[in-house]
Design a binder for these strands. Structure first.
Lengths: 185, 185
DNA sequence: CTTGCCACTTACTTACTAGTAAGTACTATA
DNA sequence: TATAGTACTTACTAGTAAGTAAGTGGCAAG
């Protein structure tokens, strides 16, 4: 399954997280794919439709991730989650939530609503991991699970952004610090 | 001193942090100010020149902030620093570093270089506060001062972004958690 | 009083944006 | 073999972007 429609979404995802939502155009996609501008409009009538599809792709991916890590321990789940962002950083991208948050006032209501759904999926899952880890004693941290989950998400999200400016080392130190904070003695 | 040139920089700063660098235009500024497009080009020949000027304004402001909080204790300095971001969040903006980081690949080299200078000023100052707090015992935290400083900056920066999506409550919980993490027992 | 500079305006160009209307080649089905 | 739908292309529009060349009004120094 490598249809034009899927390719469009994948390229759009790449462009959004590399250059930002307002810096990519249908023309950028048609330059990469061997299709014309209008072909993209055929699959996604408006840019907002494409934006929503990109978030849907991420929802699909995170659902798959959550199922995949289900058998792992809580510390392993946290590490696996942070590794997603490490890959983002290595590929010199940023996380979708961060880019769209900074462009928030310029994006369509449909994109905003879909992004809220995505953030809630990630937030609820990581809160659950924190709760479970606290109960089992496999994770030790200060504050309540929900706040800790939010703190982890914000830290690692911004660390990927900071790596754009300060290089990969800044990302690694933040990643290690996050792990240390949930393995306290 | 409320010259046209200064007004342009202030409005550009507002627009960049509200809508993103690639979503604001000279026309947006000339609509707010009672001047024409070309007047802005007179003061700032290219958009990159204006971008650099906006970061210079922030460097000026952070220098002023650092001098202002010099007599305060380390915990007070941290709180004052976090309060800057609280104001950003209340005004429904995001931090300059975050927006420009997500647009990194689309911004001019001059803007990139100037942003590195700005981040280093903030990073070095907060690292110094952490070192001093650790030495005096006024701050207690895990890890080294530099990593802790980076962790605080990334967390609060992304918290302002997250507030755009999840509302002000998410910001407050992250802010409180950061303070708790440097006042451990 | 005129020369020259500052801070603009007027009027424009080139390039690109999202989006659309109409047409076409191909494929599957009745 | 006709019909209809899918997945496009061709060719276009209206709007906006950054940027520029040339002109203007006011003011200050010589």
């Amino acid at each position: 399954m490598n249809s034009t429609k899927e390719s469009i979404v994948n390229i759009a995802d790449d462009l959004i997280r590399r250059r930002g939502y307002n810096a990519f155009s249908y023309n950028d996609i048609s330059k990469v794919l061997a299709v014309k501008n209008a072909a993209i409009h055929y699959h996604f009538p408006t840019k907002s439709d494409l934006g929503v599809a990109v978030i849907d792709l991420h929802i699909q991916k995170i659902d798959h991730f959550i199922k995949g890590v289900a058998p792992l321990s809580e510390p392993e789940k946290v590490e696996a989650f942070l590794n997603i962002y490490e890959q983002i950083q290595i590929n010199k991208k940023v996380c979708l939530v961060g880019t769209l948050a900074t462009d928030w006032d310029t994006i369509d209501d449909k994109i905003q609503q879909k992004l809220i759904v995505f953030v809630n999926i990630v937030g609820d899952w990581l809160t659950g991991v924190m709760e479970e880890g606290l109960k089992k004693g496999s994770l030790t941290f200060n504050g309540d699970p929900q706040t800790r989950a939010m703190l982890i998400i914000t830290s690692i999200m911004a660390a990927a952004q900071m790596a754009k400016i300060m290089g990969p080392a800044s990302f690694q130190s933040v990643k290690n610090a996050i792990i240390n904070e949930v393995n306290r003695q």
